[in-house]
Design a protein around this nucleic acid. Structure first.
Length: 349
DNA sequence: AATAAAGACAACCGCCCTCAG
DNA sequence: GCTGAGGGCGGTTGTCTTTAT
């Protein structure tokens, strides 16, 4: 059985609103409110518009204290961050941006922000390919590079790290520790999504939290669903050596301080991530997630990737059995091999 | 200057959820 | 419990503007 239409489609005006219509609607609502019934509103005002159309017009355009256009870098960062974490929940994202509507943000994302990020990603990939070609002509050997740099140890395999990323890691001094942050959201605003590294950092930040919350709220078998995010297992491997970094979350001891770190003769590096090694996770622990968002990100991991394939690489980003095969995660290759590890002395010197 | 293409934004559509009767 | 109205939301389309050829 079909649903009765909310209004007489034949007798309602569609298309752009005229200034007169805007004026009528605005003045009426300012004086009388909506009355809790949008459907009846246009009749009261004498507008030949659908009630839903009135509601949208009011919410998206006429409502006071609305901002239009001119998104700031800070707002860009928030939108990107939240999109990565909760997907296209525009109303929730809009709730974090005073004066912005979900429609506004949605349009902004679809028309500009996505392309902006895509453009950067493509540029990075292009540079990466060029560097790869140059590197292939030279030394093809696979080395594990160990470097001490202000207590930051880089464990890399040249064959798997983009050359320019590696150069950046080796040449760029580690950033100063971030100041205490009142909330994760505010930390987003302090981040600049000007490079893949920032996006990656955010994902690590959120990823840590996902896992913890997941265990708090769900006790599924880790392999019960491909969408379950039990832990992030990033593996790099080749025929010669393998370097594996695992974030393994103890099903029963989430957030515990236990930390296992080891390496074996195959140059394999493993550690149990407890939020200690990643500065971003530590940052996260200092703040409080907005409860609603917290719930979203903990319950819907898969959504983080909707529409963001370009952030991860075009080919074979796969999430299977709670593993992310990182062969195509260009931004992740470097960073998962970069970690602060004050305990492990095996890689010093 | 004319036209096409692309971009930006507003508005609509239809599905889903909630809640009252 | 069922039904339908209303509201909310995300996706899509339409329209106007800007830019490129």
């Amino acid at each position: 059985m079909g649903r009765a239409p909310c209004c007489d489609k034949a007798n309602v005006k569609k298309g752009p609103w005229s200034p007169e219509e805007d004026s009528k609607l605005k003045s009426y609502i300012e004086q009388h409110g909506t009355g809790g019934n949008w459907i009846a509103l246009p009749q009261k005002i004498g507008l030949k518009r659908c009630g839903k159309s009135c509601r949208l017009r009011w919410l998206n355009y006429l409502r006071p204290n609305l901002k239009h256009g001119g998104f700031s870098e800070e707002e860009d960062n928030i939108i990107c961050s939240l999109y990565i974490s909760i997907g296209s929940r525009w109303s929730i994202i809009a709730a974090q941006l005073p004066g912005r509507t979900d429609n506004d943000i949605k349009n902004y994302w679809n028309t500009r922000l996505k392309k902006k990020l895509l453009g950067k990603h493509r540029k990075e990939q292009h540079q990466q390919q060029q560097q790869q070609q140059i590197r292939n002509r030279g030394n093809n050997s696979v080395n594990v590079i160990k470097q001490e740099n202000n207590n930051q140890y880089l464990v890399q395999e040249q064959a798997y790290l983009p050359h320019h990323v590696m150069q950046n890691l080796l040449s760029t001094p580690p950033p100063p520790p971030p100041p205490p942050q009142p909330s994760v959201l505010s930390s987003y605003t302090n981040q600049a999504f000007n490079d893949q590294d920032s996006i990656r950092k955010l994902l690590i930040k959120l990823g840590g939290r996902f896992s913890g919350d997941y265990h708090h709220h769900h006790h599924h078998h880790p392999n019960s669903s491909t969408n379950d995010f039990d832990g992030l297992n990033v593996q790099f491997s080749n025929n010669a050596t393998s370097s594996t970094i695992e974030q393994v979350y103890d099903q029963e001891h989430v957030g515990s301080s236990s930390c296992v770190n080891s390496s074996n003769e195959n140059n394999q590096v493993q550690f149990v991530q407890n939020g200690q090694y990643f500065d971003t996770v530590q940052e996260e622990e200092q703040g409080k997630f907005i409860p609603e968002i917290d719930h979203m990100v903990s319950s819907n991991f898969s959504q983080r990737f909707d529409g963001l394939e370009f952030l991860y690489g075009d080919e074979d980003m796969s999430i299977e059995n709670n593993k992310i095969e990182a062969s195509s995660i260009t931004w992740g290759e470097a960073t998962t091999s970069t970690y602060h590890h004050p305990l492990d002395s095996k890689y010093q010197g």
